[in-house]
Nucleic acid binder design. Structure first.
Lengths: 199, 199
DNA sequence: AATCCCATGTAAAACGTTACATGATTCT
DNA sequence: AGAATCATGTAACGTTTTACATGGGATT
């Protein structure tokens, strides 16, 4: 089958999930993506994971087997094939340019349109974001702790690096939001005194 | 027309672009999005901007007029209507939750799969990303400088806050990548000495 | 005259989500 | 026995991108 296929990043991400030792079901993949992939590269919908797994299998990059009887809707575990591993390695190694990171930050969209919103509403939104981010930070640290413990073979050292990056990133995100809170406060102070310029 | 419509964030972003003083063509909107929106909320394809503008006009949230004769494919400038402004304000003010930021970072996907890639290839990728990010940082600062200069009315103070956030964010992104470079180097050092544990 | 940038638009395809339907397994 | 969670899959829909077609105006 396909010696080299053009696939969306999501397909490679799912194949990447499969590239770590062991067999996994789509359901398990989804949980894993929620717990780690999503910190630096979003977690696809479960239905999409199933779709990608079917595509990967059609390409010969993965195989599946049912644990029990050949009945529909019973557990199906996937494993990467040698071909899949080769294709993934070629993708990982190929292309000088990996493509720019994409950030969609709804909060910033709101801030940007801040002239339409009450100042304290805006502050609340930012505060809520900080709380949310702290929650994510805890989860990222949990994930990191799990990887640290499960060590042994070196296959997990790169996910570890990715999670460390995610941890720092979330810390930075909190700092960024706090700085923005200050900016907003300053804006209000200036606004309250009336003019565009200082007193 | 539509007293309250459910629209994707992109539609609100385009309407937001229109909510600042002046008329603009789709083409100008695209350039503006590239120069500022994209730092915190990605820049839609030009064809999508045209599509959103048509939808916004159909909803009565925007109006358009042709500068010259009523010929096809001539310049068409859009402006927001009062209804549009009201709808945008309602959207900006509504909904406690703004939705989580989404980050898709292809570089991190590669790092995460680092066991498939040569270590120095990985380093190159990160170095390239740092260079790229520094370029973005320059652009963000240019955008900020333009906004700073064009001041006067206060409508630009919130975009200014958003751009300041973006500037800091990009600075943080560089720091994050540098820290990851260190992690990678440490990994290699440990790997070169063989074991999973220290000396 | 050729080229580049401005400018608008269509069509097809891919991507991705939501909602729904279905049933097995495990825990209380 | 009932509930929660595990588990797979389909269908419909909306979003977004890519490629393409078209042509005016300005610059070299």
């Amino acid at each position: 089958m396909g010696g080299d296929a053009v696939l969306p990043p999501t397909a490679w991400a799912v194949l990447g999930l499969l590239s770590f030792p062991g067999e996994r079901t789509g359901y398990e993949l989804k949980k894993w993506a929620d717990a780690s992939l999503r910190f630096f590269y979003w977690s696809p919908a479960i239905s999409q994971i199933y779709a990608e797994l079917r595509r990967l299998e059609a390409l010969g990059y993965a195989t599946s087997r049912r644990s029990g009887p050949e009945a529909p809707r019973t557990k199906r575990a996937y494993a990467i094939t040698d071909e899949g591993r080769a294709a993934l390695a070629a993708w990982a190694d190929g292309g000088r340019d990996v493509g720019p990171p994409v950030l969609k930050h709804p909060l910033l969209l709101r801030i940007w349109l801040g002239h339409l919103t009450a100042p304290d509403r805006l502050r609340d939104l930012v505060a809520e974001h900080i709380a949310q981010t702290r929650g994510e930070l805890r989860e990222a640290r949990d994930a990191l702790a799990r990887v640290d413990r499960s060590d042994g073979p070196q296959s997990w050292s790169h996910p570890q690096v990715a999670l460390r990056w995610s941890e720092r990133r979330l810390e930075a995100e909190v700092g960024l939001a706090e700085a923005m809170l200050d900016d907003l406060a300053e804006l209000e102070a200036r606004g309250a005194r009336g003019g565009v310029d200082g007193p």
